[in-house]
Amino acid sequence: TKIIYHMDEEETPYLVKLPVAPERVTLADFKNVLSNRPVHAYKFFFKSMDQDFGVVKEEIFDDNAKLPCFNGRVVSWL
């Protein structure tokens, strides 16, 4: 699974690849690859589809939650 993530106000996003199927990747999986960053200091928002509003940034805080996936990749903002 490819996860593209944006940090603070930085213009260029980062990319990490996880050896987990897109439909199975969790917030804990993502946090594990960010071990060099203080993950407890961040809120995690993900590109998600809402039936009422369309594409939104959804906050996910449960480490066991599966991450929303679009075209085989996850897009996140920290």
Score class of each variant (00 low, 15 high):
1 T>F: 01
1 T>W: 04
1 T>C: 13
1 T>S: 02
1 T>G: 00
1 T>V: 08
2 K>I: 15
2 K>E: 10
3 I>V: 08
3 I>D: 07
3 I>T: 00
3 I>N: 05
4 I>H: 05
4 I>S: 06
5 Y>H: 02
5 Y>Q: 01
5 Y>G: 03
5 Y>L: 08
5 Y>W: 05
5 Y>S: 01
5 Y>K: 01
6 H>I: 04
6 H>N: 03
6 H>F: 13
6 H>A: 02
6 H>S: 05
7 M>P: 01
7 M>H: 03
7 M>D: 06
7 M>K: 05
8 D>V: 06
9 E>V: 03
9 E>S: 11
10 E>Q: 09
10 E>N: 05
10 E>T: 06
10 E>C: 13
10 E>D: 11
10 E>G: 08
10 E>I: 07
10 E>S: 13
11 E>S: 09
12 T>N: 09
12 T>Q: 14
12 T>C: 09
12 T>G: 14
12 T>H: 14
13 P>Y: 15
13 P>H: 05
13 P>F: 09
13 P>T: 15
13 P>E: 15
14 Y>I: 11
14 Y>V: 12
14 Y>R: 15
15 L>V: 15
15 L>A: 12
15 L>T: 15
15 L>G: 06
15 L>Q: 15
16 V>P: 01
16 V>D: 02
16 V>I: 14
17 K>C: 13
17 K>W: 14
17 K>D: 14
17 K>E: 14
17 K>V: 14
18 L>C: 13
18 L>H: 04
18 L>N: 00
18 L>I: 12
18 L>F: 01
18 L>D: 01
18 L>Y: 01
19 P>C: 06
19 P>G: 09
19 P>L: 07
19 P>H: 09
19 P>R: 08
19 P>V: 03
20 V>W: 03
20 V>Y: 05
20 V>I: 14
21 A>P: 13
21 A>N: 12
21 A>V: 05
22 P>K: 06
22 P>F: 13
22 P>V: 03
22 P>W: 02
22 P>Y: 03
23 E>G: 11
23 E>I: 00
23 E>D: 09
23 E>C: 07
23 E>V: 02
23 E>S: 12
24 R>N: 10
24 R>H: 10
24 R>Q: 08
24 R>I: 07
24 R>V: 10
24 R>W: 07
25 V>Q: 02
25 V>H: 01
25 V>W: 00
25 V>R: 02
26 T>N: 00
26 T>L: 03
26 T>C: 05
26 T>D: 00
27 L>A: 00
27 L>W: 03
27 L>P: 02
27 L>I: 01
27 L>Y: 02
28 A>R: 13
28 A>C: 07
28 A>P: 04
28 A>K: 11
29 D>W: 07
29 D>R: 00
29 D>I: 01
29 D>H: 11
29 D>A: 06
29 D>G: 01
29 D>T: 04
29 D>C: 07
29 D>N: 02
30 F>E: 04
30 F>D: 04
30 F>G: 02
30 F>S: 04
30 F>W: 00
30 F>A: 01
31 K>N: 03
32 N>I: 08
32 N>F: 11
32 N>V: 08
32 N>W: 04
32 N>L: 08
33 V>W: 08
33 V>E: 10
33 V>H: 10
34 L>N: 03
34 L>F: 05
34 L>Q: 02
34 L>G: 01
35 S>E: 10
35 S>H: 11
35 S>Y: 11
36 N>P: 13
36 N>D: 10
36 N>K: 10
36 N>I: 12
37 R>K: 13
37 R>M: 08
37 R>I: 09
37 R>N: 05
37 R>A: 06
37 R>W: 06
37 R>Q: 07
38 P>C: 07
38 P>I: 13
38 P>S: 13
39 V>M: 10
39 V>I: 14
39 V>P: 06
40 H>K: 11
40 H>W: 10
40 H>P: 04
40 H>T: 12
41 A>V: 10
41 A>W: 06
41 A>C: 13
41 A>T: 10
41 A>I: 06
41 A>P: 07
41 A>Q: 12
42 Y>A: 08
42 Y>W: 05
42 Y>Q: 06
43 K>P: 00
43 K>I: 03
43 K>D: 03
43 K>T: 07
43 K>W: 00
43 K>R: 13
43 K>C: 05
43 K>Y: 04
43 K>A: 06
44 F>D: 02
44 F>M: 07
44 F>T: 03
45 F>T: 05
45 F>Y: 14
45 F>L: 09
45 F>E: 06
46 F>N: 01
46 F>A: 04
46 F>T: 04
46 F>R: 05
46 F>W: 00
46 F>L: 01
47 K>M: 10
47 K>D: 10
47 K>Q: 13
47 K>Y: 06
48 S>V: 14
48 S>G: 08
48 S>N: 08
48 S>M: 15
48 S>C: 12
48 S>R: 15
48 S>E: 08
48 S>F: 11
48 S>H: 11
49 M>E: 10
49 M>C: 12
49 M>F: 12
49 M>W: 07
49 M>G: 13
49 M>V: 12
50 D>W: 02
50 D>E: 09
50 D>F: 08
51 Q>C: 07
51 Q>I: 09
51 Q>V: 11
51 Q>K: 10
52 D>A: 10
52 D>N: 11
52 D>R: 15
52 D>T: 13
52 D>F: 07
53 F>C: 14
53 F>A: 14
53 F>D: 15
53 F>V: 12
53 F>G: 15
54 G>C: 15
54 G>Y: 03
54 G>P: 15
55 V>R: 06
55 V>K: 06
55 V>W: 12
55 V>S: 12
55 V>I: 09
55 V>T: 08
56 V>Q: 13
56 V>H: 15
56 V>E: 15
56 V>K: 15
56 V>D: 11
56 V>R: 15
57 K>Y: 15
57 K>Q: 15
57 K>W: 15
57 K>G: 06
57 K>F: 15
57 K>A: 13
57 K>S: 13
58 E>C: 09
58 E>Y: 14
58 E>K: 15
58 E>H: 15
58 E>D: 10
59 E>P: 06
59 E>V: 05
59 E>R: 12
60 I>V: 11
60 I>L: 08
60 I>W: 06
60 I>H: 00
60 I>Y: 04
61 F>W: 12
61 F>V: 12
61 F>K: 15
62 D>H: 08
62 D>S: 09
62 D>V: 05
62 D>R: 07
62 D>P: 00
64 N>R: 08
64 N>T: 13
64 N>W: 04
64 N>D: 08
65 A>E: 09
65 A>I: 01
65 A>D: 07
65 A>G: 06
66 K>Q: 11
66 K>V: 11
66 K>N: 09
66 K>P: 10
67 L>I: 02
67 L>W: 03
67 L>D: 01
68 P>K: 01
68 P>S: 03
68 P>L: 03
68 P>T: 00
68 P>W: 00
68 P>V: 02
69 C>W: 04
69 C>R: 05
69 C>L: 12
70 F>V: 12
70 F>E: 11
70 F>S: 08
70 F>L: 09
70 F>Q: 08
70 F>W: 09
70 F>P: 04
70 F>A: 08
70 F>M: 07
70 F>K: 11
71 N>G: 11
71 N>V: 04
71 N>H: 08
71 N>M: 07
71 N>W: 02
71 N>T: 02
72 G>L: 05
72 G>V: 02
72 G>F: 03
73 R>G: 09
73 R>H: 14
73 R>S: 14
73 R>D: 07
73 R>Q: 15
73 R>C: 15
73 R>M: 13
73 R>W: 15
73 R>A: 13
74 V>D: 03
74 V>K: 01
74 V>Y: 13
74 V>H: 05
75 V>S: 01
75 V>N: 04
75 V>W: 07
75 V>I: 09
75 V>T: 10
76 S>V: 09
76 S>K: 02
76 S>N: 01
76 S>P: 05
77 W>T: 03
77 W>Q: 07
77 W>G: 03
77 W>L: 01
77 W>R: 03
78 L>W: 07
78 L>P: 01
78 L>R: 00
